[in-house]
Nucleic acid binder design. Structure first.
Lengths: 347, 347
DNA sequence: TGTTAGCACTCTACATCTTTGAGTGCTAAT
DNA sequence: ATTAGCACTCAAAGATGTAGAGTGCTAACA
């Protein structure tokens, strides 16, 4: 489609525009990039590229600005040329910080977003791991006081959820253990997703002597399972958006920040496409929400074992340093996956 | 100090400025408020008020703007005149929403901030209850698998913290119970604060037969206690700040939002003065951080039993509708305290 | 035939100037 | 003590001018 020279011109424009955020003219371009042709020739090429939809003019006689189509072309080129590199040294450095400063999983994700935002200078987003996909290891009913029991769900990565429950009559520690054991025998090694269905199937009918207790416990477990579904989203470096000239406009900044504040929307954006593998890039108009149609979103996934359980990414103006961000994300994807693997092997 | 008429003029200016956010001139004032004197007289009074430090002029021949001193005067007047009212109907309405939509304590606080921001149109802040001050009710060691035990701390309001622990050798359920019972007998009914000291005192020396186990468990409990110290801060309606003309300036908006993003600072601001009772107002220059020296902060406390455990409040431009905010805060203080009392009585 | 120099034209950004209107402060009259 | 009147001030908004970067076209050139 595009000949060699057009590609070089286009990439030069994108490269330049990403840095200066101002329409690029043919003369500046010929001065700053060694394209081997005069500004007049570049002018002609630019005119062609505009007709092909890769460039836009803000007004009649201004320089050109890359279109979403141009960024898409540029990004695909980077990916196909396998230009993404992983800086092992940097990776280990980040991993050290992450493991040192994160006691809990949620904190790990939160810290990841923080560091990611710091090194990319864009707003970072992350969702907490969807532990529904983690296997449930254990259900434990613990007697607390007379008539009060504690229901605990334990997954691969530790306690998954718990609650207290008051019963109508007291139950002995023995009885509770029997029930716990029964539940464990039946439910162990199902994913939490699967467990919900099992409960609905009323597999407990042969435990008739504890019917009353089980009838009380099951809705509680169901509720706990529901709670697990709560996804946490973290955003860090939201105010970084103010550093970009295209967001000097208060209204634009407001709508961006409002967008980030709305956790619901963030979740939708992050989970838009299913958790398939690798780096994913949504450019400008490709976004589902109008508010961020002048933003690009770059995300990657992290895994537990062989299951993708979460996402982390960066959002910023379409004029984004795609290569740098992709390189950075690679570090995090790899680090998080390794850390989760480590956690998994601990239990 | 100020005679009757000066007070009326001052309050009229503040009232007007809170609404329009623009310097108030003598003529406008005489037209919109029935002060019974001409604009020339008001002009003289304004001149006096300026000399007394209650008014400022942005430039030589502009209208007047209230100073921090003026707001302080105005707020004290409101408080002394006991103008703060509680709308019982509204209170119940909010209470209903809060109890319906909040399953957990943190969620309760988060929802409170959300609603508070919605009804006041300012940014709302809240800190999670400092449950260190809640009495610890129970410590439970639960056998999970061979050599793995679960350590659970239970407070008035439910599970306070927990973790899993791997031991070198297996311990029977019985032994664990013995240890649990012992710990409970000794530790029950101390606040978590106090408990930390008890542990340091090594009160366990007479449990020599479980020495090894206890030696493993105690640092874990200590760590759990430390974790509890984590204070969560919630901010809601951050972007409301964009609605105020004084924050149309991108840099001001950025520094405000950056401030809100920094949880550390928020905690300092909210816990600046100890958790004494009632509504507290910090106006402009009275703030400890420079970034918000043109903001006012209005907070109130909520209690559990007779102990103050948290704070909720509102931050916005010094030109703030103080009375409305105080009225709203009163609803929340009262509601949250009632809800916590209810939770307390449940256990 | 593709490339380039040259030139007329366009449009923004910026600076400067002017006008308008709300406001003050002073003075003299009530 | 209060008020009307007037001169003066200043920001905000509009008008005007200029500089600079850019485009598109044409004619010359290799």
């Amino acid at each position: 489609m595009l000949d060699e020279r057009k590609i070089r011109v286009l990439c030069a424009i994108i490269d330049s525009y990403i840095r200066v955020a101002e329409p690029i003219g043919s003369r500046t371009l010929s001065k700053e990039y060694d394209l081997g042709v005069s500004s007049a020739t570049i002018r002609n090429e630019m005119s062609d590229l505009e007709n092909l939809g890769y460039l836009n003019k803000p007004y009649t006689s201004s320089g050109r600005v890359p279109s979403d189509k141009a960024y898409r072309f540029y990004v695909n080129k980077i990916i196909n040329a396998e230009e993404i590199r992983m800086d092992i040294e940097k990776k280990e450095e980040i991993k050290k910080i992450l493991t040192r400063e994160s006691r809990e999983i949620d904190q790990l994700i939160q810290n990841s977003a923080k560091i990611l935002s710091a090194i990319t200078s864009y707003t970072a987003l992350a969702i907490s791991p969807q532990i529904k996909k983690i296997r449930l290891k254990h259900i434990q009913l613990v007697p607390l006081y007379d008539k009060e029991i504690l229901v605990i769900l334990v997954g691969d990565s530790g306690i998954v959820n718990n609650t207290m429950l008051r019963m109508d009559k007291s139950i002995s520690s023995d009885q509770l253990n029997q029930i716990s054991n029964f539940l464990n025998k039946k439910l162990k090694e199902f994913t939490i997703d699967g467990l919900e269905d099992l409960i609905k199937d009323d597999i407990f009918k042969d435990m008739y002597k504890f019917k009353e207790t089980i009838d009380s416990v099951i809705p509680i477990i169901s509720k706990l399972l529901e709670d697990i579904n709560d996804i946490e989203v973290y955003a860090d470096g939201v105010t970084k958006i103010f550093d970009f000239p295209e967001y000097r406009d208060t209204d634009k900044a407001k709508s961006f920040i409002s967008f980030i504040e709305d956790k619901e929307q963030l979740i939708n954006v992050l989970l838009n496409d299913p958790l398939n593998n690798g780096i994913e890039i949504t450019i400008g108009d490709e976004n589902i929400y109008d508010t961020i149609k002048d933003c690009s979103l770059i995300t990657t996934t992290y895994k537990l074992g062989d299951m993708t359980i979460g996402k982390i990414g960066v959002i910023g103006p379409t004029r984004m340093d795609y290569l740098m961000v992709m390189n950075s994300l690679k570090l995090f994807s790899s680090n998080l996956t390794e850390i989760f693997d480590m956690l998994l092997s601990q239990w």
